[in-house]
């Protein structure tokens, strides 16, 4: 069967199945199990209403538990077993082995660099664009264009930027714009930017900053709009200059949103994989944790160390997870 037809069939079966489940189980509850008539009608309605939420929730909870909650514990378990020894428990041996590998520490160092640079610059650029486009006529067009990279895949963006970083032999016309400018201004030989250790990390980060700035801009732009006019007007009356208004009146009022943007981008950065995989595959000292993990899992087939590195990513995400849950609970009260 052609996969496209299979896809359509799956939509029909999946959606139809879901609706049949919800409808059928509701009918069963109301008609058969606890019918809202007869001597116990009142009690039955109450009972049915106690069960119904769980009918509505069951498919989602089942999928969430199986696809996200269970893997956390299974990965934890795998990280403490040895696959070659038939899954025997070996405690922290995988973690110790991982800590002995220079490639792991290279990935850690690079991830920390990414964590510092990308959220900071994306947020800063986003804030800058949000502020600048706030008052000009074609601001929404400008925002739309800067937002556009959000729709482009990490792989597509990698190709786009590989063209920017492309190098041709010295003496010939450069087709990568970075080298064209570099040769034009300095007269030096063109550089293979992605192979220069340490600095190449920053060339990879540019790709993610390019993508994430639009996201930061959209959220911060809405936050800037939400600032009460009176505070800005009062500052103008008091003789504040535009920079003072921006840094001393506006930014403090949207600090909460800035923090949200920052943490959201931080999570993206922690999981960054495609860009490194597509552009350097971790060569020339550009390894990051997610790519290191992919290497271990699917190239060396070392599930123990691979799972251990996945747990490291989980550990780095945990503070944000706790903070989010805490905030959400506070909001619900």
């Amino acid at each position: 069967m052609h996969p496209a037809i299979m896809g359509l069939l799956t939509i029909a079966v999946g959606v139809g199945g879901c609706i049949a489940y919800f409808w059928g189980s509701n009918q069963f509850l109301d008609r058969v199990l606890f019918p809202a008539k007869g001597p116990n009608a009142g009690r039955n309605i109450n009972r049915a209403n106690m069960i119904r939420p769980w009918l509505f929730l069951f498919p989602a909870l089942f999928a969430l538990s199986l696809y996200l909650a269970y893997p956390v514990f299974e990965t934890l378990r795998l990280s403490m077993t040895d696959r070659d020894a038939g899954g025997a428990f070996i405690g922290l041996a995988n973690y110790i082995q991982m800590a002995d590998e220079p490639k792991f520490w290279e990935a850690m160092r690079n991830n920390m660099l990414w964590l510092i640079v990308v959220p900071a610059l994306s947020t800063a650029f986003g804030l800058l664009v949000a502020q600048l486009t706030d008052r000009i006529g074609w601001g929404s067009v400008a925002k739309s264009l800067i937002f556009m990279p959000m729709a482009i895949s990490f792989v597509g963006a990698s190709v786009i930027w590989k063209l920017v970083y492309d190098a041709r032999p010295p003496g010939t016309d450069q087709i990568g714009v970075l080298n064209a400018l570099y040769v034009w201004f300095t007269g030096n030989d063109p550089q293979q930017w992605l192979t220069i250790p340490f600095w190449n990390n920053f060339f990879l980060m540019v790709v993610l900053i390019w993508i994430q700035t639009g996201f930061a801009m959209v959220i911060l732009s809405a936050a800037l709009r939400g600032i009460p006019e009176e505070t800005v007007e009062a500052a103008i009356v008091d003789g504040a200059n535009p920079f003072q208004i921006f840094f001393k009146i506006k930014v403090p009022q949207i600090m909460g949103t800035i923090l949200v943007v920052w943490t959201t981008i931080t999570i993206v950065v922690l999981k960054i994989f495609d860009i490194v995989y597509a552009m350097t595959n971790g060569q020339w000292e550009t390894q990051v944790l997610a790519n290191y993990m992919f290497d271990k899992l699917f190239r060396s087939n070392d599930w123990g160390v691979g799972s251990a590195s996945a747990m490291v990513i989980m550990l780095l995400v945990t503070p944000i997870l706790v903070w989010n849950v805490w905030n959400a609970r506070k909001e619900m009260r």
């Binding site: 956390v72 997610a290 996945a310």
Partner: peptide, 14 residues
């Protein structure tokens, strides 16, 4: 809300 940020990398092997 907690599951929102769980990296899907953890789910691959299991």
């Amino acid at each position: 809300v907690g599951l929102l940020v769980v990296p899907l990398q953890l789910a691959l092997i299991p």
